[in-house]
Design a protein around this nucleic acid. Structure first.
Length: 577
RNA sequence: GCGCUCGUAGCUCAAUGGAUAGAGCAUUUGACUACGGAUCAAAAGGUUAGGGGUUCGAGUCCCUUCGAGCGCGCCA
């Protein structure tokens, strides 16, 4: 059981092999607008064999006719394509199989990998802002998809909880008094706290000295300093968790793996690099020169792993992460859901980790890069005052806007339902807007578009799902009784819907191949349009008993794929809206 | 200066090297005592920034020009 296109590619391969006189020919089966699918392999094969493409296609067709149980009709078309029309009873069998499957036809990954997904990464004592939106939403979706196909996934929230700013933050906390500072921070005004500390640091030399001394105490492990530091971290994580809860992501305290967690490893990074002979001195700092990078002057660009002052920096910390994730966690795939501007830094870190042998086949590190969120002026999204837009404010606005929209379109809902649905719709809209475009590109943040019930939006997909649920409320039938039943595929809209449903497996696979959730979004949108077309042309409840049952099967499996697919994006699928 | 990413309909976006580049919004035209019209059907809209090249075939790969964004030694 799988996507019929995948099945057919496998079934057709022997025919291509036979014509080629060798094994392993790719039939190049692709979706087609002329048929259910097309096999393009004959054209490449024609080149290889030095024969006319159509002749090769005819030969493949002749071989394919010998295949028992192909369950599709083939036709040579154009310069040598094989157009494929899947038989209706084959579609019906596959729908029955998918419908009785918990995983809706999505194949398990083989082999499974242990995957570390590094995402979100806010800073202690700083407010989460719109800059954390993409990493959090994209990372969370990838975690859900990887787990769904059976990988062993470890979430790592690499919070910024260490470094020189903590000296001034702790001193500021002492100045305010612990109780008052805790109150201040509990209100969620982390930025105000940080700014006050910063202002004092810049204006007051005595404070500056105290801050520096405090950093030394912190790094030296002074018990009282550590206690104050933990207080700051705890208050900040409370804020992070409030955002995560409202956003609906999987991250919890157990996923926290802050920079401080790698302190023990940092000196080892240096000694191990030194032992390998990779370490060099440059302007007083310890550095590694990975080949292929140059600076402004065209000279080799180093990765600094120990500053001239003896301190470590983020490169050291990132290398320690690689060691920890590979050697302690035994991960063989490291995903870094980090903004595109950090491409060079991460590339250098990965190169150095490879030079040191820490990152070796089959283990692999991937920078899952993403572009910026832009305002309508096509510049980085900011609040009206020009400050970074607070994450929590963004989510609040999503709720307010969604509630107004839901109230307008369904006035009969009770207050409680309305609030619940507004949350599902509003948060879903924000997430979907972020996930539905190719992640490497920047995208323009537009409330009206993302909350629209038309077009490629979360509300449209949720609405398609809610409509199906509405049918079941009227049908008065136990949905589980519809599982493992063969529908009859008659109308073109039924065929189109069946093909769309069966494409879920491939959509998930394509999404993971490039770590691009927008492929799953595109698929779900296509599924939703196929469904609304079916809904429009194929009456369900009014049909005769046999047709009614058949169509209810299609409705049930469509709704489950939609809800599951949205779930993989971290988006809820309400039953009514 | 060097490097990376991007450039597709008026707007916002799709398109694992495959046929005639697809959607949505907006525009125009149809379909309603409606299994939820929060919809559907259709029309119109393109020199894929420009120019070369590779290929049977290029929006996609390579070179180049232009434009935009972001990086380029001790912040993370």
């Amino acid at each position: 059981m799988a996507d019929p296109l995948v099945t057919l590619a496998a079934r057709l391969q022997p025919a291509f092999d036979a014509v080629a006189g060798r094994t392993g020919v790719d039939p190049v089966v692709r979706p087609s607008d002329r048929a259910d699918a097309q096999a393009n392999g004959s054209l490449a094969l024609a080149k290889e064999l030095g024969r006319p493409p159509r002749e090769v296609a005819e030969a493949v067709l002749a071989e394919a006719l010998k295949i028992a149980n192909l369950r599709a009709t083939l036709e040579v078309a154009g310069p040598g394509f094989l157009n494929i029309v899947v038989h209706d009873d084959f579609l019906a069998d596959e729908i029955a199989a998918v419908s009785s499957d918990e995983r809706l036809g999505v194949r398990s990954a083989t082999p499974t990998r242990r995957v570390v997904v590094d995402y979100s990464a806010p800073n202690v004592a700083k407010e989460m802002h719109v800059g954390h939106l993409r990493t959090t939403v994209i990372g969370d979706s990838l975690v859900r998809i990887l787990e769904f196909v059976g990988h062993d996934v470890i979430r790592e929230n690499h919070i910024g909880d260490w470094g020189t700013p903590f000296g001034m933050l702790i001193e500021h906390l002492l100045d305010l008094g612990e109780t008052e500072a805790a109150e201040h921070l509990s209100l969620g005004d982390l930025d105000g706290f940080y700014k006050q500390a910063r202002a004092k640091f810049d204006a007051d030399d005595t404070f500056k000295e105290r801050s520096r001394a405090r950093v030394v105490m912190l790094q030296g492990g002074d018990a009282e300093t550590l206690r104050l530091w933990k207080l700051l971290v705890g208050l900040s994580t409370k804020h992070f968790n409030a955002v995560y809860e409202r956003l609906g992501v999987l991250l919890v305290d157990d996923d926290l793996m802050g920079e401080s967690a790698y302190n023990e490893l940092l000196p080892q990074v240096i000694t191990r690099l030194d032992a390998l002979g990779l370490l060099q001195q440059s302007d007083g700092a310890d550095v590694v020169f990975p080949p292929g990078y140059t600076n402004r002057d065209g000279d080799p660009l180093p990765l600094i792993v120990q500053k001239g002052t003896g301190g470590f920096n983020y490169a050291t910390s990132d290398l320690a992460c690689v060691i920890d994730r590979i050697e302690r966690l035994n991960a063989d795939l490291l995903l870094y859901v980090v903004g595109a501007p950090q491409a060079q830094h991460l590339s250098m870190v990965f190169d150095v980790a490879r030079m040191a042998g820490w990152l070796a086949e089959p283990a692999q590190a991937v920078h899952v890069a993403f572009g910026s969120v832009l305002g309508s002026d096509r510049k980085m999204l900011k609040s009206r005052s020009g400050e970074p837009l607070k994450f929590i404010d963004l989510l609040d606005e999503a709720l307010v806007r969604a509630e107004a929209s839901v109230a307008e379109k369904n006035p009969d809902l009770g207050v409680e339902d309305r609030l619940t649905i507004a949350r599902q719709v509003g948060i879903g809209a924000v997430k979907y807007a972020d996930l539905s475009t190719d992640r490497v590109r920047d995208y323009v943040f537009d409330w009206d578009r993302m909350l629209s019930f038309d077009g490629n939006t979360a509300p449209y997909l949720q609405y398609a799902h809610a409509r199906i649920c509405s049918i079941f409320r009227r049908a008065e039938i136990d949905r589980t009784s519809l599982r493992n039943r063969e529908p009859s595929i008659v109308e073109p809209q039924e065929r189109a819907l069946a093909l769309a449903v069966l494409g879920f497996d491939s959509a998930v696979a394509d999404t993971l191949e490039k770590y691009s959730p927008h492929r799953l979004c595109t698929y779900l949108y296509d599924l939703a349009t196929s469904f609304t077309s079916f809904y429009e042309h194929c009456p369900v409840l009014k049909a005769d008993e046999a047709t009614r049952l058949s169509r209810l099967v299609m409705c049930d499996v469509t709704a489950r794929v939609m809800a599951t697919g949205l779930g993989l994006l971290g988006i809820d699928a309400p039953e009514q809206m």
